[in-house]
Simulated assay, not measured.
Amino acid sequence: MPIKIPDTLPARRVLEAEGVAVMRERDAIRQDIRPLRIGLLNLMPDKISTETQLARLLAATPLQIELTLVRITDHVARNTSADHMATFYRPWSDVATNRYDGFIITGAPVERLAFEQVSYWREFRSILDWTQTNVHRCLALCWAAQAALYHFHGTPKHELQRKAFGVFAHRNLVPESPYLRGFADVFDVPVSRWTENVRADVQATAGLTILAESSESGLCLIDDPRRRMLHMFNHLEYDTKTLAREYERDGASQLPLNYFPSDDPALRPRNRWRSHGHLLFGNWINEIYQTTPFDVDTIGAVTAVDAAAE
């Protein structure tokens, strides 16, 4: 099944050119099927690229996905046009009464600030709490993963002396996890961050399971089943050239390791993580499909009963 996104969203043209099945809104209405409702709180500066990357992975599943783009209510995006935001995004205050099968929260360019210094921290915390009552399963990426662990568990982040930047080999620590179904024992993941969560802090928190980590760049993927949250600190969703664009944006100040062939930025990088990006998102969507209530209105009520029974 294809993904349902607005007919005029820029990501549509890119995905259709790649051969990705994208459904027109009028066709989706005619199908007698309940699509999975997925919300995307996009905090990344380049929102259009992030929309495209995540829509591509969601569209690769065999289920119909209805994607809603969400923004912080009062935060004004600096790198995306006001017209784009007004046309395609809904403020969280407008969707706070909705219920979603899945909800994705991206990273944000604020990771070197203390969480409490982030201008939208209060609303962000409200959104995290809302996921516990209005969302069946949540996927937090990069800064959002760190912020969720801090909010729910008090897990601190630690600033790195040097940016973790490049493509690093990661070990599959729990191959029986449904989120790692089909993963290799070792797989490459793009990394781009100035902060980290450390193993000792995570192990000190009951109920968290480390699913993948790297000896070079640290923790990668953490499961928090009681909160129905999956935390990904890195970027399997990245395009082939995303790290190259970040390298150029930062004035070529730090070469991304293990990314350019022979570490030569004049050579085109090779995508070594695409298949595992599809696996992760496909596994996450499958877990949602297998466990979400058919009646959307019971999302939250059903999961609250399940949590109380644990």
Score class of each variant (00 low, 15 high):
I65V: 08
A200S: 13
R78I: 09
P225Q: 05
G218W: 00
N283S: 00
G282W: 00
Q254M: 15
A21F: 15
T292K: 06
R37D: 13
W121N: 04
L236Y: 01
R122F: 13
C142A: 06
R228N: 07
L267T: 09
P6V: 04
Q161S: 09
L15F: 09
K47E: 00
I72V: 11
W194Q: 15
T97Y: 10
E216H: 08
K4W: 14
E216W: 03
D83S: 12
D188L: 09
P225I: 01
Y259W: 07
A308S: 14
L141G: 01
A266N: 14
D188R: 07
H278R: 14
G277I: 02
P265E: 07
S177N: 03
I222G: 04
L141S: 06
I285F: 03
L208G: 00
T50S: 01
R78L: 11
R199W: 03
V189M: 03
M1D: 11
P6H: 07
Y247I: 05
S215M: 12
S119L: 08
M44H: 03
T205Q: 15
L173V: 07
N42Q: 04
F168Y: 13
F233V: 04
V302P: 09
V110E: 11
E246S: 13
S192P: 08
A60P: 08
S253D: 13
T242K: 12
I222F: 04
T291L: 05
E66N: 15
M23I: 13
S215Q: 14
K4D: 14
D224G: 09
F152W: 11
L41N: 02
H84N: 11
N234V: 00
Y238L: 03
N283V: 02
V70W: 05
S192N: 11
R24F: 12
L267H: 09
R274C: 05
R171M: 06
E237I: 03
V189Y: 00
H231I: 13
P175H: 00
H158S: 08
T292S: 10
H278E: 14
V186L: 12
Q132S: 12
L58V: 04
K163E: 05
I33V: 15
F103H: 05
N286Y: 11
E216R: 07
V14L: 14
T303G: 15
Q290E: 15
A96S: 14
A169L: 08
P190H: 00
T61Q: 05
A309V: 15
S262T: 13
G107M: 01
E246D: 15
Y259V: 02
L243G: 04
T80W: 04
L43E: 01
